[in-house]
Design a protein around this nucleic acid. Structure first.
Lengths: 139, 139
DNA sequence: GTCGGTGTTATAGTTAGCTATAACACTCTG
DNA sequence: CAGAGTGTTATAGCTAACTATAACACCGAC
């Protein structure tokens, strides 16, 4: 029940991203109601206003619709809209910076794949002290 | 002279990351002096205190040393220390989240490579309307 | 010593984000 | 109608981040 908040990002933003992830993963489908503001606030031990702020961002993005007295609901077309917008934002904004970081750190495709979720197999007991990077120092 | 600040990250953090990048890229070598607090503050139109905060973070990380009345200097071993620490932080902390996002958006290796800096060649005039994603909708 | 360059500290005001608490307006159910 | 569930608004207080302005302390060179 307890979720930790990433210190480098405001909570309302992380809440928004959480809902977005659920939409993309089809955990929340079009027409589904969002968990109520008060419910989420209680569950995550967060102020209702913070949750509301996250939800209103979703409304402004056209992903969610609010029905007075009833709750907030996923709009039809929300997932497609997200795939469009988030793809563009990620490729144009985040990925270039990430890609630069990867280059700077001299990380290999193999290391990245190993560290990706779904492949947590560090398998063959990699020795802590052994230098796993031996071919990246160009000077 | 003008650098834009990423709104989703405090300036002092971005300044710290900028210096770190310069160390990794060997723009700043061990023993080199950091540009002075006042210089940076003026150049980037930022408060000297903000720059100082960034620099003091670097000191706490053991990357930089301060000599009273002279300035701040890159420590020896700074780059190696960075490669160790930043690699671990990136692979263990950032990359898993990034990797998940890539999966959610159904991005392909080809799209990522094309959007990476250094390969800005969108070449063959990609038509705005054409659906470049045709094989990722599994339902 | 004086001067100009360093880092550093002090004071104070603004803004954004989060919090607690309470109340209001709407809608469906009993 | 009353009640319990929605979203929403109002007040008020706290902290972190950034800003402006000014002053202090140290070091090397003139």
């Amino acid at each position: 029940m307890g979720r930790e908040w990433n210190d480098s990002q405001p909570i309302y933003r992380q809440l928004r991203d959480l809902v977005v992830a659920m939409i993309l993963d089809r955990v929340l489908k079009e027409g589904d109601p969002l968990p109520s503001v008060r419910t989420v606030a209680a569950e995550y031990r967060v102020n209702p206003l913070t949750v509301l702020k996250a939800y209103q961002h979703l409304v402004e993005e056209g992903l969610v619709e609010t029905r007075r007295g009833l709750g907030m609901f996923i709009n039809s077309g929300a997932r497609d809209l997200l795939l469009q917008g988030e793809r563009q934002r990620f490729l144009g904004d985040e990925w270039p910076r990430i890609s630069e970081t990867i280059r700077r750190l001299g990380l290999t495709a193999e290391e990245l794949l190993r560290a990706a979720p779904g492949e947590p197999a560090s398998d063959a007991a990699p020795p802590e002290s052994g230098p796993p990077h031996s071919s990246e120092e160009e000077r």
